[in-house]
Simulated scan of single mutants.
Amino acid sequence: MQDKKKYILMNIVIAFAVTMFFSCQSKKITSPDYLESEEAPIAEAFEVNLKYTDSGRLTAILKASRILDYSNRSFAYHEFPEGIILDIIDEDGKVSVVTSDYAISYQETGIIDMRGNVDILTADSTHLQAKQLYWNQNLSWVFTDQSYKSYLPDGTINEADGFDANQDFTILNSRINDGVMFIEE
């Protein structure tokens, strides 16, 4: 009888212990919110100064205060939330400068979307200002459907509601133009 009581008491203690074991919850240690978010970039860089070369020749210098790398996404991109300064160097060593308040570069398509005070000053002194500008690196083509203003070296001023051009601006298709042009007689 004593063994039977001992056996029942032991089963009750085991049942109670098992119940307590499975009813307890462990406290999950969480990482910071920015690591858990699917919206977070995979990397972030500050005060960047990238130099691009082609066959040993310096072709461009990209400066940015901050770059967010979203290459972990299905449609990978790099975001420049504080803008860019891009120096493009031609084969003769002449420099054209592109600046904007914000930019985003899509790896898959090769398109760069620049927004806010987009300013281009080419090596031949052509100056273009726009609210937004797209650059298709694969096609070497620049375009916008926003208003822009351009100043050519000969004093010509052009304002329009959109354009598309090759990146050298030797081919330019502009819409709804208004401007001043100087013509020699």
Rank of each mutant, 00 (worst) to 15 (best):
E44L: 06
C24T: 13
V18L: 15
G155T: 07
L86N: 01
E44V: 13
Y151E: 04
I29A: 14
T144I: 04
V13N: 09
V18M: 12
L133V: 09
N136I: 00
T99V: 13
I12T: 03
V180M: 12
D168I: 03
N136Y: 02
A64Y: 01
L50V: 10
A17P: 03
Y151S: 08
A60T: 07
A76N: 01
Q129E: 15
F21L: 14
S74Y: 05
V18I: 15
F21T: 07
G162Y: 01
Q132F: 06
Q137G: 02
K5V: 05
A160H: 02
D154V: 07
S100F: 04
I42L: 11
A17D: 06
I8V: 11
N136M: 04
A160Y: 02
Y7T: 05
D164P: 01
G110S: 04
Y148N: 02
A103P: 00
Y134S: 03
S125N: 15
Y134K: 06
I183A: 09
V97A: 13
N177P: 13
F75M: 09
N173C: 03
G179Q: 11
V97T: 15
L133Q: 02
L133S: 01
Y102V: 10
F22H: 13
G116F: 06
W141E: 00
S55V: 10
Q132C: 04
D33G: 06
L152K: 10
Y34K: 13
N11D: 07
K131H: 09
R175G: 05
E82K: 13
M10Y: 03
S65D: 15
Y102W: 15
L58S: 09
Q146M: 09
K63N: 14
T170L: 15
I61L: 14
D54P: 03
N158M: 14
R66S: 03
H127A: 03
E39H: 13
V48Y: 11
I157W: 02
S105E: 04
T53L: 15
V97D: 05
F163M: 06
G179D: 04
D92E: 14
N166L: 10
D145G: 12
G83C: 11
D90I: 10
T30R: 13
I104D: 02
S55C: 09
R115Y: 08
A17V: 12
A103K: 00
E108S: 07
E108Y: 05
I85E: 03
A130F: 01
I29T: 12
A165C: 12
L9W: 04
I183K: 11
I104C: 04
H127P: 00
W141A: 00
N11A: 12
I111D: 02
D145V: 06
L139W: 11
S125V: 07
D101V: 07
A130Q: 02
V180N: 13
S74N: 14
I67F: 02
Y102C: 09
P41M: 05
E91Y: 09
T19H: 05
D113V: 02
S105W: 01
G56F: 07
T156V: 04
L128S: 00
D168H: 06
V98F: 02
I29F: 08
Q132A: 14
